[in-house]
């Protein structure tokens, strides 16, 4: 007949062995994960293809205010997202597009929520009567602030005049 305290000691020993195995497995897993992460080139990132960032109204969470999309997006090591092309659309309260911004070779800073590019930018109204073009820009979608650095050209076409009255 074994002493009851001896059984307790055995259980404690088994428990200690299991805990040490778990700890060792956890440490080994962490090292393996770290090794895998370090094995990836830092600047390669993951090509996601299409990047989408909708912005909704604070007061009406179901109403979309704008949509930022990027084609050829790739995540950079420093948290930036580079895009071959950028498209931003602003919407009216009834959901119609009221402004479109197009850019190429853009970088989106998700932390500060801004996009910039040294390349060309084009901003236009859906009817094409208001067009702005320039070279090099910085765009803050959150407050709709756009800075164009060089060679800005704005073209504003008057709306078509009302049709003549057909009254006899």
């Amino acid at each position: 007949m074994s002493h009851p305290r001896a059984g307790t000691n055995d259980r404690r020993a088994r428990h200690a062995r299991r805990a040490s195995w778990r700890w060792a497995a956890l440490v080994a897993g962490a090292f393996a994960w770290a090794a895998a992460v370090q094995a990836q080139p830092a600047s390669a990132g993951v090509v996601r293809g299409l990047f989408r960032l909708p912005e909704y109204d604070k007061d009406e969470p179901n109403r979309i205010r704008s949509l930022l999309t990027g084609v050829g997006a790739s995540a950079q090591a420093n948290g930036l997202i580079s895009m071959n092309t950028l498209r931003w659309e602003g919407y009216t309260r009834d959901g119609k597009t009221n402004l479109v911004i197009l850019g190429t070779n853009c970088v989106f800073d998700a932390r500060n929520r801004l996009a910039y590019s040294p390349d060309r930018l084009r901003m236009e109204s859906p009817d094409g009567r208001f067009v702005v073009e320039g070279l090099g820009f910085l765009w803050r979608p959150t407050n709709s602030h756009l800075i164009i650095s060089n060679r800005v050209h704005t073209r504003l076409q008057a709306p078509p005049s009302a049709p003549a009255s057909t009254r006899p």
């Binding site: 756009l146 164009i148 800005v152």
Partner: peptide, 11 residues
């Protein structure tokens, strides 16, 4: 049309 050219712009 109205056309505007400038070195830089802030909208």
């Amino acid at each position: 049309p109205v056309e505007i050219y400038s070195d830089e712009a802030d909208f």
